[in-house]
Write a protein that binds this DNA or RNA. Sequence first.
DNA 1: ACACAGATACTCT
DNA 2: GAGTATCTGTGTC
Length: 195
Amino acid sequence: MEEISSLQREFYLQEDVVNLAKQLIGKWLMTCVEGKLTGGMIIETEAYKGAEDRACHAYNNRRTKRTEVMFHQGGIAYVYLCYGMHYLFNIVTNQEEIPHAILIRAISPAIGIETMQKRRNTLRVSDLASGPGKLCQALKIGSTHNGHLLTQAPLWIEERGTPVPEEEILATPRIGVAYAKEDALLPWRFVKRPD
DNA sequence: ACACAGATACTCT
DNA sequence: GAGTATCTGTGTC
């Protein structure tokens, strides 16, 4: 049995969600579902800055059944269904009552490739987890993981000694948030420069 | 009751 | 690269 060395909860309590989204590039997202260990390095993230961010589900402190977990203390998962068919995985950050979150948009598949290929019904590794819906399918992340504490199985984040230098991280506007008016242009999406 | 969504996989060029 | 069908939970009316 492989030892789990997940990030401590303190990591997720940082105030600056934008900087935290950047720090997550190079960390590893892992799951162990149905006895299958799967995971890879995080290569794309987006920061969502709670009440003050028009692109955030919790903008203006909108608190509903769906957004409730964003108001909890950082370090847990926020998983929701998009377009009625894709699950998207977010990390809740900051202290209680501050609904910050980071959307994980892509990982570089590395552990349990075969399992992910079956779940995704494709052999093409570059297509296994190159999108927020795809990576949830590959890692079998679903609504049951909503609110899950990320320091433990079956869903956690690790430091595996694969730092990504600052100059290899690009900052761009976020995807699919044109409705967010002036906030749509904020450079809060982080992408590891392609190899 | 109803419009639409933080996307993907197809199908063509 | 562009165009399009897909599906249902959620939020708002």
